[in-house]
Write a protein that binds this DNA or RNA. Structure first.
Lengths: 334, 334
DNA sequence: CGCCTCTGTCGAAGCGCTTCGATAATCGGT
DNA sequence: ACCGATTATCGAAGCGCTTCGACAGAGGCG
């Protein structure tokens, strides 16, 4: 019942078998008679046995822990990151792994330490920049890793992400179908573009290409995250482009400010201006009007990242790039 | 240089000493001559030695890892939770500990497993409810724990939190000083109150008491998080209480909707209505006007939680309750 | 000058587990 | 009824580290 420091040898004694037999029952790595298995499992249960993680890691050279590397940078939308994080944890548990949380302040040393000490078997990196200082390190590490996001040079790395270029294009296509001819993209704060964060740029590229392809007029602008700046930006946009009738907003923190500013300027959504957002569903649903949006499938991204990492841990080959297809949900803003 | 699987015995050989000597140099648990120490540290550096975490945990019965238990519930403001989380990680590293991330979906079993397998030495629980199912489990665990937040019965537990009652009172005092006589508190979504989350209730109590004490008129209302509901609620509030001139908002997600709604109804802030928020500084600063606010000192809460846990791990006695004092920053909304 | 106390170092015994090779016991085939 | 191939189980050797006790050598004391 208790579980306080029950060891495998106590289980073995209780079940009347050898220590190794218990181990094999638990790991399934050798055939064990149904009878013995049952006895052992009974003992495990009644004694409340939990294998000691350290001992297991030492003997098997597998910690059953993966690292989640999560730098927290300005302008990143935290709830989305958190969705990634939880889905990584949940997925990892499904493979019987736990998750060690590593943040930025330790820098590359943290990764190196966790990997070299065999604290973790592999790494999932989030919020990857185009020129990310952690990427070279990754290549010299023995431990496998998976990136959420794409660095500039992703050769030899395993990367997963939403296809943001496609997401940008999807928004444009939707607006084009609705008959809009002049549109604008309000993206991440400029600091995010300057840092070279991949997803912001890729959305912009997808937007720009699709605008050209559909023969529309369009601008792509960065978008800060406080109300006054958003309001000023929208004001200028409406002034200089009187024909503007569609907006794509790829900035979770600013999207409600955008709606507030449009309200302020007396523009009705979707009557005067249609708005498509790239954001999680809950934000889209909480806005007024509820926003037509392209969902960032955080849950699936995390799950895929873990799946790929597990494959690599098994020594299997995996595709370098995994791009998840975005889906657009129509609500009341277009 | 490499670091790939360098063991303590290789370091010992390289430095020409015994394995135990290397261990003592690294742990400082026995006196070692400066000369030997230098030689050993040199070898450690040139070989790129990192002690194997599993072996260390096995031999020393200390994993040097703490668990961060983070249920993700509806209505919780994620960025604030994330601030707690990062400050816990940062603080833990300062004590040479890593952080294992445990989420809700596994429930109590996750805690039990992590503790019983000696994966972690102690636990930090976040987002504690008044009647939290994890609390009884904690008491039966051998591993020490610290809660961020207070359950209804905190006897025998170590809890840290902002003094939310004081925070609520502080807001009232500030409004009273500014001459407001009739005020309202817009709090968490009703689901959060129903769940019995401590901080929401405590703020409300602090608010209510202070209102009475200062002879003001005041109501405390829950506040949902989508614009239309907030707008309707504000509309009704303005209608039914024409004398209302001050608002306390304790809801990070709704605070911008509140400002939007006031704008919509033509009320000027702070001219017609003064607004005080209880929220992180970045939200207060990004709003328009910048909000007078009481800061939730997430960084300090996390740091204190870890400090207390480390004290407990050392076997030292610690106070059961730690309440951090809120501070009010005056900006442009009052 | 012999005795005792420190200091600095060493060797060895585990920590609890996995895994390899060995050994009984069982079975089908002839 | 005997032999070789399974099948089920066991014992022992580590995995890399910490820690305990032992012990030389240095130094202080009477």
């Amino acid at each position: 019942m208790s579980g306080r420091g029950v060891t495998i040898s106590e289980v073995a004694r209780h079940a009347g078998v050898a220590v190794s037999t218990v181990s094999y029952v638990l790991s399934g790595k050798r055939a064990i008679s149904t009878d013995t298995r049952r006895r052992v499992l009974d003992s495990v249960r009644t004694l409340g046995y939990h294998p000691n993680a350290g001992a297991r890691a030492l003997a098997s050279k597998r910690a059953n822990v993966i690292a989640l590397v999560l730098p927290l940078r300005a302008g990143m939308h935290v709830p989305v990151l958190m969705q990634f994080a939880t889905s990584v944890v949940t997925a990892a548990r499904q493979y019987d792994h736990d998750v060690l949380l590593l943040t930025a302040d330790e820098g590359s040393d943290g990764l190196r330490r966790a990997a070299a000490s065999s604290l973790v078997d592999g790494l999932v990196l989030m919020d990857v920049e185009l020129h990310d200082s952690r990427v070279p390190l990754l290549k010299e590490l023995a431990e496998p890793s998976v990136l959420i996001g794409f660095p500039a040079d992703s050769a030899g790395l395993t990367c997963v992400d939403l296809d943001f270029a496609r997401a940008g294009a999807l928004c444009v296509e939707h607006l084009a179908e609705r008959g809009h001819r002049e549109i604008a993209l309000l993206g991440a704060p400029s600091v995010v573009y300057e840092r070279g964060t991949g997803f912001a740029r890729r959305t912009r590229e997808g937007f720009t290409e699709a605008v050209a392809q559909h023969g529309l007029t369009g601008v792509a602008l960065p978008c800060e995250e406080n109300f006054d700046q958003v309001s000023a930006e929208i004001g200028e946009l409406l002034d200089t482009r009187p024909g503007l009738s569609g907006l794509v907003v790829h900035n979770e923190a600013a999207v409600n400010h955008v709606l507030g500013a449009l309200r302020q300027y007396g523009r009705r959504v979707p009557g005067d201006i249609a708005v498509v957002a790239i954001c999680p569903d809950d934000i889209a649903e909480r806005s007024s009007p509820a926003l037509t949006s392209v969902l960032i499938p955080a849950e699936e991204v995390g799950r895929q990242a873990v799946r790929l990492l597990m494959e690599k841990l098994e020594g299997r080959a995996v595709p370098e790039d995994t791009l998840l297809q975005p889906r657009l949900t129509v609500r009341n803003s277009t």
